[in-house]
Simulated assay, not measured.
Amino acid sequence: MSANYWTSSHLKDYIYTKSELNVIRLELFKQEYTKYGNNWLTIPLQIKDENNGVTQNKQISIYAKELHYDRDYNLRIYLYLQLMKLGKKFQLKQVIISTAMVYLQRFLLKCSIKECNVYYLITTCLYLASKVEECPIHIKSLNLIAKSFWPEFIHSDFTKITEFEFYLIEELSSYMIVYHPYDPLKKILENYTIFAKDTIEDGQNIDDYLLNYEFLQDSWAIINDSYVTDSHLLYHPHIIAISSLLLALVLKFTKMQKNCKTKKMNEYIAFSLINIEQIEGCMKELMVLYQFWTGSNKQDQKFNEKLQKNKYNEEWIRFLLYQLYYHKSVTAV
């Protein structure tokens, strides 16, 4: 185990450039195409006409975004919320849920969503993360709760989780240590506070520049949401932390407050020599997520008005996953 992020397996083996990530996912897509062909999934749809409803079969193309983790934000958000739901049932710390989400993302770089049961993947990632973060869950309790959430997809035999655990560890090459932006966020705020106090001019009110605890909570919430994106495969934890701070500034404060705090924060970033391009890239990942999640765009409302997270289509992705596993079970029979 490495106590230093800069010498850890997290940095050496699981931080990619965008081009590297695209190459990995392209290879996975080629494998899917070779195995399943173009129209890989047939689903029944109820189409309404003037007289009555007619059920027709629809072919899902392999080129469509559905059930491709890199392109389907419905799938990303759904898996994240299911993992959160399972973790909150056991009142686990957020860092355990976040670790599990990183395991899930790393696993889906090597295995197609079409080749595994995502509900077992969610359950096993949480089980493994709880052990790595030294807060283990009893496997029988976990299996019982998971089965109550997804009875069609989770077997009553809890050893299935153990089997998947070995598979998961193998695919992750036994690299279990994950570094998160939560600690860097606290350190950045501490250093920013010192910087603001040292650089304030005579006659200025220091309260106009400091960031309070409520702001820390908003930044923390944005970091939690960042696990839906590729940020934790592309950027260092401190980059994600500072990006969340800047985005919270945009969303939280009034124009006058924002001008004071943003100006001082920009001075701090320039002074600390943090990579600006990486911050821009990370913020773009987050904004794309929120624009999809809220259904907002420049035409209908400003991005910084609200983040009402109810625009993604959970029923559709749940239906697709059901049809996927139903189709596989029928084919196996």
Score class of each variant (00 low, 15 high):
126 L>F: 06
21 L>W: 03
92 L>N: 06
309 K>S: 09
243 S>T: 10
278 Q>M: 14
85 K>Q: 13
127 Y>H: 04
105 Q>D: 15
170 E>L: 09
110 K>G: 08
48 K>S: 08
12 K>W: 04
283 M>P: 00
293 W>A: 13
300 D>N: 15
229 T>Y: 05
38 N>D: 14
137 I>D: 03
253 F>M: 00
75 L>D: 03
137 I>M: 09
210 L>F: 06
233 L>W: 07
6 W>N: 12
186 K>L: 13
306 K>P: 03
47 I>N: 05
83 L>M: 14
35 K>V: 08
31 Q>M: 09
6 W>E: 13
91 Q>L: 12
315 E>D: 15
11 L>G: 05
5 Y>G: 04
59 Q>V: 04
68 H>C: 08
22 N>C: 09
295 G>K: 11
3 A>G: 12
280 E>V: 15
107 F>E: 01
314 E>G: 00
128 L>V: 15
6 W>T: 11
104 L>R: 00
262 T>E: 10
230 D>L: 02
16 Y>G: 05
183 D>M: 09
172 L>S: 05
127 Y>L: 05
315 E>Q: 13
89 K>N: 10
54 V>M: 08
198 D>R: 11
143 N>Y: 06
188 I>Q: 10
227 Y>F: 15
320 L>H: 05
186 K>H: 12
136 P>M: 05
231 S>F: 00
269 I>F: 06
291 Q>C: 14
281 G>S: 10
14 Y>E: 01
251 L>A: 07
243 S>I: 10
196 A>V: 11
44 P>A: 01
247 L>T: 11
37 G>P: 11
201 E>V: 06
4 N>V: 13
314 E>Q: 13
12 K>G: 00
242 I>E: 04
137 I>W: 01
296 S>D: 11
301 Q>W: 01
138 H>P: 03
276 I>V: 14
192 Y>R: 03
112 S>Y: 05
293 W>S: 06
280 E>C: 11
146 A>K: 02
172 L>F: 07
122 I>G: 00
288 V>F: 10
137 I>S: 02
89 K>L: 06
67 L>E: 01
71 R>H: 08
88 K>T: 13
259 N>G: 01
291 Q>V: 02
155 H>R: 07
227 Y>A: 02
70 D>L: 09
238 H>Q: 13
5 Y>R: 05
24 I>H: 02
28 L>Y: 01
328 K>R: 15
225 D>K: 10
101 M>S: 10
205 N>K: 11
47 I>D: 01
329 S>R: 15
184 P>A: 09
81 L>W: 08
212 N>Q: 05
211 L>I: 06
216 L>M: 06
142 L>K: 00
283 M>V: 04
202 D>E: 14
178 V>E: 02
10 H>T: 02
304 N>G: 03
29 F>C: 08
51 N>M: 08
261 K>S: 04
278 Q>F: 07
310 N>S: 15
144 L>G: 02
7 T>A: 13
